[in-house]
Amino acid sequence: MAKNQEPKNQANTNNHVDSRIAAVRDLIFGENIQQYDSEFADVYDKIKALQEESKKSLSESVTHLENKLSDLESLMEHKIQDLSDDFEKKIADLDAEKADRRKLGKALEKIALMLQE
């Protein structure tokens, strides 16, 4: 039983010393610590507000980019369909006439120029 009381006595002694150190620390640095705590709290609040603002801004940017990509995809599909229709029309015109290599070459060049735009 004596062994069990020794750790309890040490713990009580350590707590007593710790409370004395804390009391001295508070006497010497009390106002400064409160000021630092207040400043740190303000900084943490500002950081949290900036994080939330950044998340919101990022979310808006992602939505904006997704919309732009969707518009671009739609525009490209429309352009490809127009080129395909034009190509089919030119092929039909060439089939109706005699298959002239010069006309076919010019049609393919025109299509290539349209694709480059």
Rank of each mutant, 00 (worst) to 15 (best):
Q81C: 15
A49F: 08
S70N: 12
I28C: 00
Y44T: 12
K79E: 12
Q116P: 00
K98Q: 10
D26M: 06
M1T: 09
L50C: 08
E53G: 10
L58G: 03
E6A: 13
R25E: 09
D95R: 11
E39R: 10
Y44Q: 12
L69I: 00
S19P: 10
G105T: 05
L27C: 02
H64K: 07
K106D: 06
E39N: 13
A112P: 03
K79Y: 07
D71C: 04
P7D: 12
I80D: 06
A23G: 04
S19W: 03
S59M: 02
V17F: 12
M114W: 07
I33R: 12
E66W: 00
N32K: 14
A92K: 03
G30P: 02
L75F: 08
I28G: 06
S57I: 09
S59I: 00
I47V: 15
R20I: 15
K106P: 03
H78Q: 09
K46F: 05
Y44D: 14
L58S: 05
I91G: 03
L115Y: 07
A41S: 02
I111A: 08
H16K: 15
S57Q: 12
I80N: 14
A99L: 14
D100V: 02
V24R: 06
L83T: 04
A99V: 09
S70F: 03
L72K: 04
Q5K: 15
K90S: 07
Q34N: 10
S57K: 01
N4H: 14
S70G: 03
M114G: 11
E39Q: 15
A112D: 14
V62K: 07
I111L: 12
Q5G: 05
K8P: 04
A92Q: 10
N4I: 10
S38T: 15
N9K: 11
L94V: 08
N9L: 08
L108V: 13
T13V: 08
D71T: 03
R20L: 15
L94G: 02
D85F: 02
Y44I: 14
N14R: 08
M114R: 15
K103C: 00
S74M: 03
E52H: 11
E31P: 00
